[in-house]
Amino acid sequence: MTTAAALEASGPAVDTEPIIEVSNLSMRFRSKRSETLALDDVSLSVMPGEFVTIAGPSGCGKSTLLKIIAGLTLVTDGEVRLYGERVTRPQREIGFAFQRSALLEWRGVRKNILLQAEMRGMDRRHAEERAEHLIELTGLTGFEKALPHELSGGMQQRVALCRALLHEPRVLLMDEPFGALDALTREQMNIEMNRIWRETGTTVVLVTHSVPEAVFLGSRIVVMSPRPGRIVETLVPGLPDEREYSTTLTDPRFTTAAERLRDLLGASHVAE
């Protein structure tokens, strides 16, 4: 908390500094017989307020990259800086959303969201107000007491999103959060995600292997190659922050970026 507070106190000047800085990151997984290079010399800077999507084929190490930023996985080479400080252990000044919603089966919606507050020892009343606000923001009103198994996949992900946002983290890391949803629900979640990003001003890094999702959500799209994961290109379509399926999907900037991204991912598949 001290870091975040200090950064906020020092005013808008820090906004020119990257909030996440990944430099020359390499990651090897060792098993008994072999050594796999999962990430190869990855460098990436994320500025405050950005929505960065990381797109790449399955198994390119993009989820690993996200877990390294969160301090959940230790790096082999290189370093990660979050809020200017080196990441050496699990970071708590972030929100993390998993591919599967990772909800506690025995807690209702509100209590699942409030887990964040209980674990952090946040002020209870403030946390409850905040949870109420997020429940409203994500359209979960009326389901406060429903258990996860009573919710659809999309609603479970909304709960996970509320939980990740409860403590107002300045950075939200999302690991294919909508990967398990059907196409329609996914589009809905993308629209909501875009709105939440605009309304909260949170910096978001979202990993996906969906081309439309990467372009629709990202203000910047980082494209990775198959294992060993390298950054092959960064796309900045220059779309307005507010995205709508009706207008965005037909926008030439969207189609150009999507086409380019599909080419890059397709080409890398051929190379594989």
Partner: peptide, 26 residues
């Protein structure tokens, strides 16, 4: 679920809290 433990780590939860609120009920 290992993801629940990772989640707990990003919440800065102590081992005791993780045990009491996640591991034991599970």
């Amino acid at each position: 679920d290992p993801e629940l433990l990772e989640l707990s780590a990003t919440m800065g939860a102590s081992r005791w809290k993780t045990f009491r609120k996640i591991r034991f009920p599970g």
